[in-house]
């Protein structure tokens, strides 16, 4: 009379373990399928409430996703910068054309230099005239005020290494000045690092927001199905069985919210596209707003689905403990 295992003296229920062993997996799958469609149906039956919850989730997802997109576009920018990060070595005014060519060749042999392009004083003046359109003013000058220069493309990209190269070139006899605008590049990189952290913090914060939104919605759902939960618990439902429909609801909310956020991001991108293009045009640049792409969109959907599921899991776990059959 006192065995511990329920399998021992199962009276007429003795046929049960066998049935569970043979059809257990199939029954489990069947219940999963049933709950998946049942929970979806419940959401569809209350479209406004469902949409509002999904919208709240979508808004919580849009901010970090949007910031991530902005950072992504910044990364696109600095990829372009890498190619154009050059040093300009200005020679002293008294360096003649042949001496300038010798110096340029010498600079080209330095370690860390990938390529050089000599800009003679005359070429420099022509460039200057072309870009600024100040023909008249320059025509008044008797002598060319510009020194010859050489544009150096370094084969290193680390700001510190480029800095060191610039100092070595500065020490050359006949070199007046080495122009290297790394400070803003540095700042941009720091800004990007900061942005990444902010995006991460926002993602965590708003992820928590999604958990709370789903958790609260599921809490209400649990409350409204309290009698049903009590009854099925009384007649032998496991916690997993009771939890299942709510977990699917949470996952649906997450998936719907994620899809909605993708739609809103796409619409917003469309809306911003033409002013951004016009702005870029005015800087003579081609710049299009980045989009998430298939991989990242799929990731966002997966992430929001998991968040919804997790929010439901937390809420149900907490509230099932409160529900004790009378």
């Amino acid at each position: 009379m006192s065995e511990r295992q329920p399998s021992g003296a199962r009276p007429r229920g003795a046929q049960k373990p066998q049935r569970r062993a043979s059809g257990g997996g199939r029954a489990w799958l069947r219940h999963h399928r049933a709950m998946m469609s049942d929970s979806a149906l419940r959401l569809v039956k209350r479209p406004i409430a469902t949409l509002l919850t999904m919208l709240a989730i979508a808004i919580a997802l849009i901010l970090p996703a949007g910031l991530w997109l902005a950072l992504d576009s910044a990364r696109l920018l600095d990829a372009e910068l890498d190619e154009s990060a050059t040093l300009t070595v200005y020679f002293a005014a008294d360096v003649g054309e042949s001496r300038a060519m010798d110096l340029a060749a010498e600079v080209g042999e330095q370690p860390g230099v990938a390529g050089t392009r000599l800009v003679t004083a005359a070429e420099g003046l022509a460039d200057f005239q072309q870009t600024l359109g100040v023909d008249d003013a320059l025509a008044q000058l008797e002598t060319n005020p510009l020194p010859a220069s050489v544009v150096v493309t370094p084969d290193v990209t680390a700001p510190a290494a480029v800095q060191a190269l610039s100092q070595r070139l500065q020490a050359f006899d006949g070199v007046d000045e080495v122009r290297l605008d790394l400070a803003w590049l540095d700042r941009l990189q720091q800004l990007a690092a900061l942005g990444q952290r902010v995006a991460l913090a926002l993602a965590l914060l708003f992820g928590l927001g999604v958990l709370l939104v789903v958790g609260n919605t599921i809490r209400l759902a649990v409350e409204s199905r309290r009698q049903e939960i009590e009854v099925v618990t009384l007649i032998g439902a496991t916690h997993a069985f009771v939890r299942r429909p709510f977990l699917y609801s949470g996952a649906w909310y997450g998936l719907g919210g994620g899809a909605l956020s993708l739609i809103i991001l796409a619409l917003g991108g469309n809306w911003l596209a033409s002013p951004v293009a016009a702005l870029a045009e005015s800087y003579g640049a081609h710049f299009a707003l980045p989009s998430l792409g298939i991989g990242n969109s799929a990731f966002l959907l997966l992430f929001s689905t998991i968040l919804g599921w997790l929010g439901a899991w937390l809420a149900v776990g907490r509230h099932l403990a409160d529900i004790k059959p009378r």
Binding site: G23, R26, H31, V231, V232, G236, F241
Partner: peptide, 9 residues
């Protein structure tokens, strides 16, 4: 309901 809970075919 009891049969559903037990996953009976």
């Amino acid at each position: 309901l009891p049969l559903t809970i037990q996953g009976v075919d």
